[in-house]
Computed example of a mutant assay.
Amino acid sequence: MTAPYDYHIGVDYHKTYSHLVVQDSAGKTLRSGRVKNDRQSLGSFLERYRENSHAVMEATRNWMVMYDWLDDICDDVVLAHPLKVKAIADAKIKTDKIDATVLAHLLRADLVPEAWAPTEKARDLRVALRERMFYVRLRTMVKNRGVTVFDRYPEQTAQLKKLGDLFNKTGLQQLATLNVSAIDRIQIDRGLEFIGDIDGRIKQAEATIKAMTKTNGNVKLLKTIPGIGEFFARLIDAEIDDIDRFRNPKKLAAYAGLVPSTYSSGGKIFHGKIIKQGNKWLRWAFVEAVAPAVASDLQLRAQYEHLKLNGTNKARVAIARKLLTITFQILRDQRPYERRGVDSDEGASATISRLSR
């Protein structure tokens, strides 16, 4: 149970304004109204309710701004999981005032399904990591657009494609000599110049990330896991933030969305594909780490090849789950990864067996 606060504040946060509802311990609404999203307006609205108060808001887009303002005013701030606040998500009638009132009632009754509020350090690192990922995606888009142009000249580019990467040093030199139309030459040159600019931004972003994690011991530990390199180590550490908030690997797997969907009816249980909810960045990192992991670790490769008999996708998910389990143990015990036998980790082996069925 939460502490017996005098004031319970529900906040329905929007881009330019928020609707606030202040209730007392009996559930009586003391104040309700729309507030402009700035520190001064929020402070003025809640001036009489600062002492012994707590507030709740949903983890919506850019929630950090309002969360930090409320944290300076109230004794405690609770971050609600938007998909789990069914009283709001499933409501037939939705208004800002109703949503804020429901949040205040749930907070007063200690029934708020909480979302994790990362530390400021983890938040900053996540911002830096997402910047790099944005530039990488942008570079891929520009390259794909260039490939569309190249495909109009199959005879000239057929030999180039054998290089494997049209955009490495050798490929770029060859692309510069292609005999194409004037407009296509303009587009190719602009695209290649743009890719060079993006590469520079990626290097700058990586330098920022490296400086932020220079003394991070967790990153060094995570890099000892097969398939986990510099970037994934930093991403995984930032998304987990604090391993102690997970009681066991299963909780971490559920948070990452690396657990099968389950349907139970009539005494029978069916397991389907992995759930769509969860931290998409963690799930992506572990799944992407599978290929380099099985290429560098004999035990993981043997397990992967065995599980492929039941389907490649199931095998990838199972190995990703094993990498997650290893991550949990390494961060919990604060020791580097040590290669062991295939079945030495009973928990991970059980997981692989279940997911491969």
Rank of each mutant, 00 (worst) to 15 (best):
P249V: 04
K121D: 12
T327S: 04
I225Y: 00
S44D: 13
N168L: 13
E155H: 13
D237F: 00
L324M: 04
F45D: 03
T325D: 01
L20P: 00
I236F: 00
V180M: 06
R185Y: 15
I274S: 00
R31T: 05
L30R: 08
K276N: 07
G347I: 03
R50T: 09
P154H: 09
V11C: 04
T140W: 04
I225N: 00
E51Q: 14
H105Y: 11
H14D: 10
V77N: 01
L125F: 01
R50C: 15
I73G: 05
Y337G: 07
D12M: 14
T95N: 06
E47D: 15
L355D: 02
T224I: 01
S265R: 15
I225M: 01
K162V: 14
I183T: 10
I209S: 01
D76V: 05
E239D: 04
L298R: 12
A320V: 00
G266C: 09
K251V: 11
T213Q: 03
K162A: 14
V112S: 01
I269E: 07
D12A: 11
L172K: 11
V21I: 09
Y255Q: 09
G27H: 10
D72W: 11
C74S: 10
N218M: 05
R31I: 07
E230Y: 06
I183E: 12
T325L: 02
L172N: 09
A315K: 01
V290G: 00
N168E: 10
K308I: 02
Q187S: 15
I9T: 02
M212K: 08
G227V: 02
M57F: 09
V294Q: 00
L166N: 07
D124M: 08
I183K: 10
R283S: 02
H19Q: 13
Y135D: 03
A302Y: 08
E338V: 10
K97L: 11
T312A: 13
L355R: 03
G341H: 03
A89R: 08
R283Q: 02
F246T: 04
L172V: 14
P249L: 04
L331N: 02
W63I: 05
I236D: 00
V259Y: 01
Y17W: 15
G164W: 05
A211T: 11
T60N: 14
T177N: 12
I188K: 08
V136M: 07
R247P: 13
A117T: 12
D71N: 14
P82Q: 06
Y263P: 13
V180C: 04
R130V: 03
I269C: 08
M57H: 03
Q174F: 04
D244E: 14
Y5M: 04
Y67L: 08
R316L: 09
R354K: 11
S41H: 05
K203Q: 11
K169Y: 08
I202Y: 07
T148H: 10
M1D: 10
Y263Q: 09
L70V: 06
K143P: 06
E51R: 12
N248M: 07
